[in-house]
Simulated assay, not measured.
Amino acid sequence: MEARIMDVSPIRVVLALALWVLLMMGASSYYVWNWLRTPQNIVLQDNVYIIERGSTLHGVAKDLNKKGLIRWPRLWVFYAQLQNLSKIKAGEYQLAQRESPLSLLSRFQTGELLQYHITLVEGRTLTDFITTLHRHQKLSKTLVDKNYAKIVAELGLSIEHPEGYFFPDTYQFVRGDTDKDILLRAHLRMNEVLHQEWINRAEGLPYKTAYEALIMASIVEKETGAVFERKEIAGVFVRRLQKNMRLQTDPTVIYGMGELYDGNIRKKDLRTPTPYNTYTMHGLPPTPIAMPGKEAIRAALHPASGNNLFFVAKGDGTHYFSATLDEHENAVQKYQKSRRSNYRSSPVELRLEE
């Protein structure tokens, strides 16, 4: 009996052990691979996971393990390193209802971050834009309590007055973006739109520069919310400029009044000179008074032809246009017996000496 035991070949023992090790390795590899690929339920609020800036793969693995999203953080990291997938991207991720360790790693590699959007509305001022930006909780606020000069400096722009220089549109962003990021994108977009519209402008316009067209566009934007009227209103103002008539538009007066405006315009306000009071000055105001959209810019550069020199708000969001002062005064009596807080201006030959 002892002889038979002694006859067992050492080679066979080694081979048996090797086979056992291989089998165990194969089983372990299969188990690990199956774990990496198997989806499991995500138990996070709104299924949102955040990787902070500066986070490491090891740190994220520990956090995922703590939140119950992966069972073996070291194996997850080892696999990522083995596959050269260690560079994850910081940000906010919208996870599916079920995710596997591999799908999580893939998400963090591609950087498909959760997107938000914010709309900057036409006809608003830069102050309004910043207020809108600061209301969004996902945007970082860097321009709090800063005046226009400081904002221009923070943005690094080579402009004197920022009004009108930011294109109203809907912008997408991700968590961690700042108010500056959105404004810089809006500024770049405005430059692109204005440049394209300027090179395609109509002939014979009374503008020396694209900036003057931007000023006019801001006035047109404030005058009407009716898209079909914009070119007609632009035509009235262009003809008034060409005839050296005052623009006499209330939105410029309101802008010049600043915080003194309480919702009403009085005769004394129309007679009080400011750089923006187009009832007392000729020509365009020194800067835009709001952020014009593309249609207002296009209207300023492609005004409607005709003889109209006046218009008055009808009270339904549209205007009545007139070619003569008599016709206009009759329309004023009909449509505007008193100025209201929502009154849109109606150019009229105001007698300032009265």
Rank of each mutant, 00 (worst) to 15 (best):
F129D: 05
S140T: 14
L133R: 08
L114N: 11
F166W: 02
G164S: 05
S106D: 14
D181M: 05
I118E: 04
T142V: 10
L102Y: 14
P162C: 08
Q115S: 13
F108E: 02
L143N: 03
D177M: 14
E160F: 09
T131K: 15
G176V: 05
D145N: 15
Q83L: 08
L85R: 15
S86H: 01
L143S: 07
P101R: 01
L139A: 03
R71K: 14
I159E: 01
F167S: 07
E99C: 07
T142M: 05
W72L: 12
Y79K: 12
Y79N: 09
Q115Y: 01
T142H: 04
L133K: 02
K87Q: 13
I118K: 06
F166H: 05
K138S: 13
L126D: 03
D177A: 13
Q97D: 14
N147A: 07
S100T: 10
D179R: 02
F167M: 13
L75P: 00
V174R: 09
Q81H: 13
D128I: 08
R107A: 12
G111E: 09
Q81F: 10
Q172V: 07
S100G: 11
F173N: 11
A153H: 05
G91D: 07
K180D: 02
L69N: 03
L114G: 06
N84H: 15
E92P: 05
L155P: 00
Y79A: 11
V152A: 12
L104N: 08
T125K: 11
T178C: 03
L184I: 09
T170I: 10
I130F: 10
W76P: 02
Q137I: 13
R74A: 03
T119M: 10
T178H: 10
Q137M: 10
F173D: 08
H136I: 09
L143H: 05
D177W: 06
R124A: 10
N147W: 01
I70N: 01
G176Q: 10
Y93C: 05
K138T: 09
A80W: 02
I70G: 02
T131Y: 08
R98A: 14
E160V: 13
W76C: 07
H134A: 08
S86M: 08
R124T: 14
R135N: 15
K87W: 01
W72I: 00
R124N: 03
D169Y: 13
G176T: 11
W72F: 14
V144M: 03
G156D: 09
Y116M: 04
L126N: 09
E99F: 02
K87S: 13
T142P: 01
L114W: 04
S106I: 12
A149F: 00
